[in-house]
């Protein structure tokens, strides 16, 4: 099987007040189709920047990103967004405050000229476990967990193959986090999605992802499989310190 998402030697450099800030430096990773890949590291380690670079939201200064063997067009265009969608960290900031849920969910359909809006919106709400009565509500009438469900529903409107998840549960309570993680697991199984997920919680990453890349200061530190993590087969000092700081998240 060929690699589905293939990132080679990616670098992202921001220009901050004339100073070059290297957010990502020479990171390579491969994700197989239908697999789930996790990025962990402290804030500022460049993990979210990788997701943003895939979407064309960060200035790529080196390296290549291929999906399904093809290089990505720039600007990304409609065929890209039909294939790859992103769920952001903060459900309070990522939904338009003055658009109803209905408008948020039907907008991607309108842009892509897909009809049958009514039944698709209803089905989308149903898929993420929200009652139909939520359709004409505004985001401020919803709780954090409900908003994140809407954000996931929005990302799935175009039936993409890949979901980029940027800390999808870190703004949520433990019980709500469990619900959203269960939802993501179920949707991945049902639709054969490929996940690329960022989180700083090793336990969350371990629950969802098959392979994990530990990052620090914009560089890849160590790649681990789920088995490596469970049996603490970790070779680098930084990944070890991250693992030790999460010791209370271990089973037992």
């Amino acid at each position: 099987m060929t690699d589905y998402i293939e990132i080679q030697d990616l670098s992202v450099t921001f220009d901050a007040k004339g100073r070059k800030v290297k957010a990502v430096e020479g990171v390579s990773l491969c994700v197989d189709k239908h697999k789930s890949y996790g990025l962990v590291g402290e804030s500022g380690s460049g993990k979210s920047t990788i997701l943003r670079a895939i979407c064309g939201l960060a200035p790529i200064t080196g390296g290549t990103i291929k999906i399904g063997g093809e290089a990505l067009p720039s600007p990304r265009g409609k065929s890209f967004s039909a294939r790859v969608q992103m769920v952001f960290q903060d459900p309070y900031a990522s939904l338009h405050p003055r658009h109803t849920i209905d408008r948020t969910l039907s907008e991607p359909l309108m842009i892509h000229g897909i009809g049958d809006t009514d039944s698709r919106v209803m089905k989308a709400l149903d898929d993420v476990g929200l009652p139909k009565s939520f359709r004409f509500r505004y985001p401020h009438q919803l709780s954090g967990g409900q908003r994140q469900r809407v954000a996931i529903a929005r990302a799935l409107m175009l039936q993409p193959e890949i979901l980029l998840l940027d800390e999808p549960t870190s703004a949520l309570d433990a019980s709500v986090q469990a619900e959203v993680l269960n939802l993501l697991t179920r949707l991945r199984e049902e639709r054969g999605l490929t996940f690329l997920m960022v989180s700083h919680d090793l336990a969350v990453i371990d629950h969802i992802c098959d392979d994990i890349l530990v990052m620090q200061h914009g560089r890849a530190v160590e790649e681990l499989s789920r088995e490596d993590l469970a049996s603490a087969r970790i070779s680098t000092v930084y990944a070890r310190s991250l693992f030790d700081a999460s010791a209370d998240r271990l089973l037992g």
Partner: peptide, 20 residues
């Protein structure tokens, strides 16, 4: 107990997490 049980664990099973 419910709050504790709904947390994922490293090396835990992939079964759905229990709700509260």
């Amino acid at each position: 107990r419910g709050l504790l049980n709904c947390l994922p664990r490293i090396g835990g099973s992939r079964a759905p997490l229990p709700g509260l």
